[in-house]
Simulated scan of single mutants.
Amino acid sequence: MTTQAQLDDRYGRTRSPRRRIVLWSVVGVVAVALTVALGWTTVANNLASVTSTDTGFAVTDAERVTISFQITAPVGQPVACAIEAQDEEHGTVGWRVVEYPASEDHTRAFSEEIPTLALATTGFVNSCWVP
C-alpha cells in the first residue's frame, strides 16, 4: 500500500524549507515597502499642509466684519485663504479669498475685512491652501 508521503515524494508535492523561506522573505519585503510608502505619503502631505487658527472677529457695521487669524504654512510658499462671514442663522453674508506671498516665517498673523450683504454675527477662516 502506498502512503501519502510516498505519493507526495513521487509527484513533487513536498514543501521544501527553502520554498518557505523565499515565500516569507517576499511577504516581508512587500510589508516593509507598503509601510515605507504609507509613511512617506503621510510626511509629504503634512509638509505641504496649511493650518489656520481664528483669533477673533469684530463686526464693524451691517456692511463689514473684520477677522483676525493666524496661518501656519510651509516656508517659501504662497498661501491663499477663504474667509467667511455668517449671520445668526449660519447663512453666508460675506466671502472673500485672500492671497499672501511666500514668506520665510512659518507662522503669520493677519487681520482682514470682509464686505457683507447683511449684519454678520461671526467671521472665520473657511480654509487655507498652497495655490
Score class of each variant (00 low, 15 high):
R96Y: 14
A109D: 09
R20A: 03
R20T: 02
A44Q: 15
S49T: 15
V32E: 14
T42S: 08
R108I: 13
Q6D: 15
V36S: 06
R64Q: 13
N126I: 09
A31N: 09
Q4P: 04
R20Y: 02
T42N: 10
S111R: 11
R13V: 05
R20W: 01
V59S: 07
P115F: 08
I71T: 06
E104A: 09
D105R: 14
V27M: 07
G28R: 05
V65G: 00
E63P: 01
T51M: 08
F110M: 10
G56F: 08
V30P: 01
S16V: 02
A37S: 14
T2L: 15
V93R: 00
E84I: 08
P131C: 10
T72Y: 12
Y100V: 03
A82N: 03
T107N: 11
W40H: 04
A33L: 11
T107L: 05
T72E: 15
I67E: 00
V36D: 09
E84H: 05
I114D: 00
T53Y: 11
S16A: 06
D9M: 14
L38P: 02
G123S: 09
R96D: 11
V32A: 14
T122V: 13
A82F: 10
A85F: 02
D8V: 09
L23E: 10
I67G: 00
A120S: 09
Q86P: 05
R15E: 08
S49G: 06
T35F: 04
G94T: 01
N45P: 00
V26R: 12
W129S: 13
V79C: 05
V50A: 02
A109R: 01
R96I: 10
E88F: 14
T2A: 13
D61R: 05
V32R: 06
A80V: 11
G39R: 15
R64A: 04
G12F: 12
P74T: 05
T66A: 07
E89N: 13
L47I: 10
T51I: 01
A31I: 12
V130Y: 03
T2C: 04
A5V: 10
Q70W: 07
V29I: 15
